[in-house]
Computed example of a mutant assay.
Amino acid sequence: MFKKLFSIAALSAIATVTYAGSAQAANFSYSSGIFRDSNVTNQGAFSENVNNPVYETFDFNDVSLPGNGRVKYSFVGSDDSKSKGVTSVGTGSYGPAGVNGEDNTSAYLKVFKGMSAVIETAKEGDTFNYFGINLGALSIGNTLEFFNGDTAVELKYTDTAGNKKSASILTYDILTALAPTKNNDEQNGFFEFFSEGTADNFDRIVISQLTGGGSGFETDNHTFRIGTGKFVQASVPESSIALGMLAFGGSMLLGKRKEKKSVVK
């Protein structure tokens, strides 16, 4: 099924780009992202949700294909550019840049000609309603797609001139025109995708490199939210708030006890 989808994408990458509004489509935005730790600037840009435990984040820094009980990764397709490298996780010269264009010396995901990295919900019936991704060293042949089952999810966005647009496949031309950060003469940026409702939740993301010439599709620091329906920004988990209130209440009680003890002599 993945090979079939890949072939369809390769044949229709340009034809499926549209600029008409959609009745129900996911939105996406683009920015320079943030640093996970302000003291560490060589690991690319991250989602503002990276430090919120409600979200799943994979930074690829253990140099292996990530995944867990909720999110799974795989490679599909046929690599016919062996001399240029194979789809992998590792370090290199074209890692997605940091917030201000800083070099990324950490590990990241690399997809080369004829290949796709496929990201799916690991549990049947689960869907994503948020996805954030650091895109970098954007080059010709890069494509990004979202699916719910076998149905492509339309994506709405506002371009840099303020025009409302949409596309079912995000191509290099679209992405590089939007990405705000530059490094090694190529555009980089942090892109975030938000569901507007159940109809545009997605359970599969396909990152592909359709052409060769030594180019690849480099991404890093993927952040997910498993959810159904419209995406709503998640706050700190209630359990953490409750623990904080308990700790605060305990300190207040201890303070009062000390105050009483100092008065009674």
Rank of each mutant, 00 (worst) to 15 (best):
T18F: 08
Y19P: 00
Y19D: 13
A20P: 00
A20F: 10
G21D: 08
G21N: 04
S22G: 10
A23I: 11
Q24R: 12
A25Y: 03
S29T: 15
Y30P: 00
Y30R: 02
S32K: 15
S32E: 11
S32D: 09
G33Y: 04
D37I: 02
D37F: 09
D37Q: 10
N39P: 00
N42S: 15
Q43T: 15
F46A: 05
N49I: 00
N49E: 14
N51A: 10
P53M: 00
P53E: 04
V54K: 14
E56K: 15
T57R: 01
F58W: 09
F58D: 04
F60I: 01
L65D: 07
N68W: 01
G69C: 03
K72A: 11
K72D: 12
S74M: 14
S74F: 13
S74L: 15
S74W: 06
F75W: 15
F75I: 10
V76W: 10
D80H: 07
K84C: 07
G85K: 02
V86W: 02
V86S: 15
V86Q: 14
G90V: 08
G90H: 08
T91W: 02
G92P: 05
Y94A: 09
G95S: 08
P96H: 03
G101W: 09
G101Q: 09
E102Q: 14
D103E: 14
N104F: 01
T105L: 10
S106K: 06
Y108S: 03
K110L: 11
G114L: 03
M115P: 07
V118A: 01
E120C: 00
E120S: 04
A122C: 06
D126C: 03
L135W: 07
L135H: 10
A137E: 11
L138V: 09
L138G: 09
S139F: 06
I140C: 03
G141A: 02
T143F: 06
